[in-house]
Design a binder for these strands. Structure first.
Lengths: 237, 237
DNA sequence: ATTTGTATTTTGTGATCACAAATATACTCT
DNA sequence: AGAGTATATTTGTGATCACAAAATACAAAT
């Protein structure tokens, strides 16, 4: 007997030396990021534990952590859901990205070694290749890896957790940004960013990152298009 | 028989309708914010549970949440500590505040109603009074309440949790900022902010908030003074 | 006196259980 | 038939237990 609307979640691979709670956290995190859980749909600890084939305990910890990162919402009656997206919240999240990410990039700039620069070039190359080959599902993770590597060059980094939280709240829309990229992007802002890094020009770097983010959300150029994407993400699957 | 270095934590009052886990979270949070726990000192779930007179379970959840907010650190061997402060990290946290808070203020500006404005004025008045009366322990919470109320005027607010996380990581230094204020502040930046709100001038508001933050950390004007404060916070109590 | 190896204790993790609150289901009365 | 009520079930919370890994204490040996 199957319970009503059995949630299906893509299970991540369990690497060794990792606690069950961490694995559950990673799995739920990627499920949220990939829009595999319907926003508003009530999640239960026992239900998730059953789907993931673990005891309720690690699920409790993972949920607690994800709600602290604002990836999950705990309502008044202690029910856990994926928060619903709205056009205004989407805008707010994007503006927060623009406030934080160029700043994080500029703060990281002095610490970008030639080695890191090379890795950035490589990541960018892989990203371009993925898009050219139509492997759109690879584009978003590679894009995120590029940004993450850049920001984390700063050894005293404190912004990255906040930025990751924003990405998580944007959820499936991060993927949309990358997948719709080919029809919207004119200039490769990553190349501009790389140039700015080579020249150690923080201002140019900030501009490039800001443009990269703004053009990444160009797919939602009109309120109508954005609303249609939101509706889509709240229904499908 | 007392265990070695028994941790003493100021217990918060238990309001009804609140789970034990939430109460433990609040209590640990304020302990971190007030510098009651020595940075680097290993915290144990069972030890805290004993001090707080609860079972280990709610402590586990609270710790998980606090570490997600970067208020606590979990090292490789799963030991929990309050992260040590360094001069560079302090600087990084302050710059992150300056990147986020003026932005949050400007985004909230259009939503500040006359009622909220009045509450802001009242909070500012209470803060001034507290400083004038030498009640320095009240100054910091009132200052935070002022900022929090302003930012949360925005109904689609997404920055506040990140800002609160920064305050939490700054921890005891937030208090220092307010307590040392009387010998450092020349202009009341809150009044400038209130004026900017009245005039619906986002740029002036951003400048006022930025100046408020910068002058709040003027007590650490030289690297030496900052280092002495850090050393102090890593030893005392 | 410092180091190395062993035994003991402590600790985090995960599972299971009990219970009250919340939710869902069944039933009655209008 | 529909709304309200009572019953049954599910769910989150918190406590307790088992176990392996880590930390600590202590011993002997260099």
């Amino acid at each position: 007997m199957d319970k009503k609307s059995p949630i299906t979640i893509t299970l991540l691979e369990r690497t060794d030396g990792v606690t069950i709670a961490q694995w559950v956290y990673r799995t739920l995190r990627s499920a949220v990021m990939n829009g595999e859980i319907l926003p508003g749909k009530a999640l239960t600890i026992r239900g998730l534990a059953q789907v993931l084939d673990v005891s309720p305990m690690p699920v409790r910890e993972a949920i607690r952590q994800l709600s602290a990162e604002n990836a999950l919402e705990i309502n008044a009656s202690r029910r856990v859901t994926v928060p619903k997206m709205t056009a205004l919240k989407f805008n707010e999240l994007c503006e927060a990205r623009i406030a934080l990410e160029p700043h994080a990039a500029a703060r990281a700039l002095p610490f970008v070694t030639p080695d890191i620069l090379e890795q950035l070039i490589e990541l960018n190359h892989q990203g371009d290749q993925a898009i050219a080959q139509g492997k759109l599902d690879l584009a978003s993770p590679l894009n995120q890896a590029f940004h993450r590597l850049l920001y984390s060059a700063n050894p005293h980094q404190v912004c990255l957790p906040m930025i990751e939280s924003l990405w998580l709240q944007l959820g499936p829309f991060m993927r949309l940004a990358s997948s719709k990229l080919e029809e919207f992007y004119l200039v490769d802002r990553h190349l501009e960013a790389l140039d700015a890094i080579k020249n150690q020009n923080p201002f140019a770097l900030q501009l490039a990152i800001q443009a990269d983010i703004r053009e990444g959300i160009a797919f939602a150029s009109t309120p109508e298009r954005l609303q249609s994407f939101i509706d889509h993400s709240n229904q499908v699957r």
